[in-house]
Computed example of a mutant assay.
Amino acid sequence: MPRELQVTVDCAGPGRLAAFWARALGYEVQAPPPGFASWEEALAAMGVPPERWDDASAVVDPSGVGPRVYFQRVPEAKRGKNRLHLDVRAAPGLTGEERMVALEQEAQRLVALGATRLSRHEPRPPLDAGHVVMADPEGNEFCLD
């Protein structure tokens, strides 16, 4: 039986990172439980103290196809390069210069949202179609592919 996939990201500011990734992926911040108008209302009703309200957040694909991305607060800072990273498919089906132009346009959009552009890798056929390495607002690397 197939399993659902959730991507979990350790971070310092779950709410901020969830907002970035929702906009980056075209996702939505997960809605509060039924019967609550906001997460603050829900968390208060659950007895969660206000200083813990940003301990976690999640984003979901509005179409229900993509995986849920969950952000959890951890006390330690990020150290070194990610061992696992996300590839954001920003130019599927495109090749050559057309592909690289589309990736650069997406990189500019994400920089405006708070990402950092780290490097560009030119196409090297037959296996590498070219990509741009980015970092989210907390420095987690991801690729525009």
Rank of each mutant, 00 (worst) to 15 (best):
A42S: 06
H85D: 14
A18K: 02
P2R: 02
L110F: 03
E104C: 09
D54S: 05
E104S: 10
P137L: 02
M1Q: 10
A56Q: 10
E141G: 08
V101Q: 14
D128W: 11
V101E: 15
G93S: 04
G114M: 06
P92A: 05
Q105G: 15
E97S: 08
P34H: 06
R52P: 04
A18I: 07
R79L: 13
L113Q: 04
P123Q: 08
W53K: 04
L94G: 07
H131A: 09
M134E: 00
W21L: 02
P123L: 07
F142E: 03
C11N: 06
P50I: 05
A115M: 07
A56W: 11
P75N: 05
G139T: 04
V48P: 01
E51M: 05
Q108N: 14
H85S: 12
D55R: 06
A42T: 03
G15A: 05
V133C: 10
F36D: 02
P32T: 07
G130R: 01
L94V: 00
R109C: 06
R89T: 13
P126K: 04
G26C: 01
A77G: 13
D55T: 00
G80I: 05
Q105W: 05
M46W: 15
Y27P: 00
T8L: 09
P67W: 04
L110R: 06
G35V: 09
L86F: 08
E106N: 12
R109M: 07
A90T: 01
R99C: 10
E122L: 12
